[in-house]
Amino acid sequence: MMKRFLILSALISLSIFSSDKIGRLPVYKIAVEAVPATEEGIVLRDFIKEQIQSTSRGTISLPLKESESGNWEFDKEGNPTLETVANIKRYTDTDKLVLISTEDGQAVISFVDVLHRKLEYRNSLPDSLSKTLVSDFLGFLDKKNIYLALSETGSGSNAQLKINSLKPTYVAGEPIRFEIESAEDNYVYVVLVPENQKGEPILLFPNQIQNDNFVRKGDRVTIPDKRISFKASSVPSKDRIRAFASREEWKEFQLRGKKEDSFYRLLPPAVTGTKTTARSMTVVPNTLTASIEQSPVMEWEYQILSR
């Protein structure tokens, strides 16, 4: 998946603007249902709802009547059956759907993207390990909230950062390289946001070659380093570059990437395994994403054309 996004594409006019989503909490509206509504499933459902709500990991939608009826089935790619599509369509005021089932001594949690009608997460463990299962799911939800914050939040002045050499349009296979200049001493985080959020944001800077992202006033940094390949793909798209300027390092996040990859992912500790105890269930994601929300952000949009 990573290599797919390292080869980029773009077909557009360049636009520059600061975020207008100041103060927006980067969480989803989530429905949590027990299907079928067994006694054990309802207990687990209520526990998950309490965990999401008490830690501000999301806002809880009201349950639907008879939501436990019908089949909830997905293929190996996460695509729903026709009957499942009909069930999903009933959730008109919901971003995500959590399905809880407890059968044959197993607890199962499924996480569905309602808008795109896609299964994003599914995991199961014996009933005796249901809290461990919930902890794993909440770590996944933390990651989703971070990616939402990277894609849609940010505040402050649009004068903090300047970009140079990013063109309005690119063609397939063309190298993409630009400069970032900071008006003040800042930690700078530069993120690629794929078109329509079809893929997860990728941290372009810092990266495995340029791991020092403290940029002093007036300094110019070329992104990516010339030793890293960053090219337009053959698929036309409209992507965004988002650059955050922060006085403080984002220490609450973990950088993770494979050895063969040039760029990192920005993940919460619970996902990277640095905090696997039950305490990870009590981390308030509000604090996880606060540094993203409070950092001034600049955004540049470009399009990629196929040859």
Score class of each variant (00 low, 15 high):
residue 145 N to H: 02
residue 182 S to W: 05
residue 164 N to F: 13
residue 181 E to C: 01
residue 165 S to E: 14
residue 163 I to D: 01
residue 163 I to N: 06
residue 176 I to V: 15
residue 150 L to N: 02
residue 150 L to H: 02
residue 150 L to R: 05
residue 174 E to G: 03
residue 153 T to V: 12
residue 173 G to Q: 12
residue 140 F to N: 08
residue 142 D to F: 08
residue 153 T to E: 09
residue 172 A to Y: 07
residue 148 L to H: 11
residue 177 R to D: 08
residue 152 E to A: 13
residue 141 L to T: 05
residue 178 F to V: 06
residue 154 G to R: 09
residue 171 V to I: 15
residue 156 G to D: 07
residue 145 N to E: 04
residue 177 R to T: 13
residue 145 N to C: 12
residue 183 A to Y: 04
residue 161 L to R: 09
residue 144 K to T: 11
residue 140 F to T: 11
residue 145 N to I: 10
residue 179 E to P: 00
residue 167 K to L: 13
residue 157 S to C: 05
residue 168 P to K: 15
residue 172 A to F: 03
residue 175 P to K: 08
residue 178 F to S: 08
residue 159 A to H: 11
residue 183 A to D: 12
residue 169 T to Y: 01
residue 161 L to S: 05
residue 147 Y to V: 01
residue 153 T to K: 09
residue 173 G to K: 10
residue 146 I to W: 02
residue 169 T to F: 06
residue 181 E to R: 07
residue 183 A to G: 01
residue 155 S to M: 14
residue 150 L to K: 05
residue 148 L to K: 15
residue 174 E to M: 08
residue 182 S to L: 04
residue 145 N to A: 10
residue 168 P to Q: 12
residue 154 G to D: 09
residue 151 S to E: 14
residue 159 A to L: 13
residue 166 L to T: 03
residue 183 A to F: 08
residue 177 R to P: 02
residue 147 Y to E: 15
residue 144 K to P: 00
residue 157 S to G: 07
residue 151 S to A: 15
residue 181 E to Q: 13
residue 157 S to L: 11
residue 165 S to P: 00
residue 151 S to T: 15
residue 177 R to S: 15
residue 152 E to T: 14
residue 153 T to Y: 02
residue 170 Y to V: 04
residue 155 S to K: 15
residue 168 P to M: 03
residue 150 L to E: 07
residue 166 L to R: 05
residue 170 Y to P: 01
residue 169 T to I: 09
residue 154 G to A: 12
residue 146 I to V: 15
residue 168 P to W: 01
residue 155 S to Y: 04
residue 182 S to N: 06
residue 177 R to A: 14
residue 148 L to I: 00
residue 142 D to R: 07
residue 146 I to Y: 02
residue 179 E to H: 10
residue 146 I to E: 03
residue 143 K to L: 14
residue 147 Y to I: 01
residue 152 E to Q: 14
residue 141 L to Y: 03
residue 164 N to R: 13
residue 141 L to D: 08
residue 163 I to C: 13
residue 176 I to D: 04
residue 157 S to A: 14
residue 175 P to M: 05
residue 151 S to Q: 12
residue 165 S to R: 13
residue 149 A to T: 04
residue 150 L to T: 01
residue 161 L to Y: 06
residue 142 D to G: 06
residue 156 G to R: 12
residue 143 K to C: 02
residue 148 L to A: 07
residue 144 K to N: 12
residue 163 I to T: 10
